[in-house]
């Protein structure tokens, strides 16, 4: 299953990457699964996406909770809590 993953703000800086296309293994079905899959890359990934880090996620540009499902072709984004306004 192929998805596009975007990273913003401090997450983007820590990972040194703003976007990538990933082909996911079959056992990755939710945002929480994807986060754990990316964390398994180790190094900056394990740190920036650690469970202790408060992150927000979006699927197809809507904010969603970690249990949200992802499907082929989705645009998924990881970012810190927002600070606009």
């Amino acid at each position: 299953m192929k998805v596009k993953v975007l990273y913003f703000a401090s997450v983007r800086e820590k990972l040194g990457k703003d976007a990538e296309d990933i082909d996911l293994p079959a056992n990755v079905a939710t945002i929480a699964d994807l986060r754990s899959h990316l964390r398994s890359r180790g190094g900056a990934w394990a740190d920036a996406l650690a469970d202790s880090k408060l992150l927000r996620t979006a699927v197809n540009q809507d904010m969603v909770p970690p249990a949200a499902a992802i499907k082929a072709g989705d645009e998924v984004a990881f970012f810190p809590p927002v600070t606009g306004g």
Binding site: F8, V82, G84, G85
Partner: peptide, 14 residues
């Protein structure tokens, strides 16, 4: 609208 912008709109200040 302002209160929700602060928590829902994806902006980040550095």
């Amino acid at each position: 609208i302002m209160d929700y912008l602060k928590t829902q709109a994806p902006f980040w200040k550095k």
